[in-house]
């Protein structure tokens, strides 16, 4: 028996909007720790890892570890039917091939049940070891989204270079080149508006902008984004989900031929 009640149902709506274009089908894993997902895109270039900790749910009952295969497009369609202020409860019986999403309006005057078929998904689970990164950049998530969108109108790839001066995002295309430098800026009114650079070693890596633009669909989940960079390792683009966990995207770098 599984029963997860999330008062801030909009979080789950936002999570689905963040991952549904990158991944078609995925297994959601439920354990005492929380509700999690790990999945790769169809070309195995990017990986998404989601964790919503059990403590973040108003009610969390998971009698035994279960894995529920879902089509994320269909799940997003169902969650779109929930109001932004609705409380969302996920329910599944042991051995059942369906999951039920229950949406309650804040005043309890409207209650809806949506039942979705589960699927059997053969998915590979990757072990992601702790790593030391050469540089970690924290910046406003809206600023990062803007940069990715702007650069993708010029080129297909972005070179991210971190030095003591700041973090530079560069691209080149048929019409020309673009460079955007964000300097460390910790003297802002609100901490979420700061750009903070922790650098152990300068690093410069090339990535496909198409994937970054997909990751920025998670922007509504967090005011800030963290980029963890190391040469010869995938970049980690992390959006913290307040009080609950995170959504992390891993993208392998492009290598010069």
């Amino acid at each position: 028996m599984l029963e997860l009640r999330l008062v801030q149902g909009s979080l789950l709506k936002k999570v689905l909007e963040a991952v549904k274009d990158l991944v078609n089908d995925a297994n959601f894993d439920c354990s005492a720790t929380g509700f999690s997902l790990q999945a790769m895109d169809s070309s195995h270039v990017a990986l998404v890892a989601l964790l919503l900790r059990s403590e973040g749910f108003e009610h969390y009952r998971c009698d035994r570890n279960i894995s529920m295969g879902m089509n994320l497009g269909n799940m997003a369609k169902m969650l779109k039917c929930a109001g932004n202020d609705d409380i969302i409860t996920l329910k599944a019986d042991d051995g059942s091939d369906v999951v039920t999403f229950m949406f309650e309006s804040p005043t309890q005057d409207k209650i809806a049940d949506f039942e979705m078929k589960l699927m059997d998904i053969d998915s590979e689970h990757l072990g992601i070891p702790e790593a030391e990164y050469h540089a970690i950049v924290r910046m406003p998530s809206s600023e990062f989204a803007r940069i990715c969108k702007d650069l993708s109108s010029i080129g297909d790839t972005v070179v991210i270079s971190v030095t003591k001066e700041g973090v530079k995002f560069s691209t080149r295309g048929d019409i020309g080149t673009a460079n955007i430098v964000c300097r460390q800026n910790t003297t802002v009114d609100k901490p979420e508006e700061a750009t903070v650079i922790e650098m152990n070693e300068p690093v410069s890596l090339t990535f496909a902008l198409r994937y970054f633009n997909s990751f920025t669909k998670a922007t509504p989940l967090s005011n800030t984004v963290t980029l963890s960079l190391s040469s010869e390792l995938p970049v980690v683009v992390e959006y913290k989900i307040a009080e609950m966990g995170y959504i992390r995207f891993y993208l392998a770098p492009k290598i010069e031929d």
């Binding site: 195995h44 270039v45 990757l126 072990g127 090339t206 392998a252 290598i255």
Partner: peptide, 14 residues
């Protein structure tokens, strides 16, 4: 040019 590496080249199946 540059080529795209797969994420599975960095992380192993568990």
């Amino acid at each position: 040019g540059s080529s795209q590496t797969s994420i599975t080249e960095f992380y192993r199946s568990t």
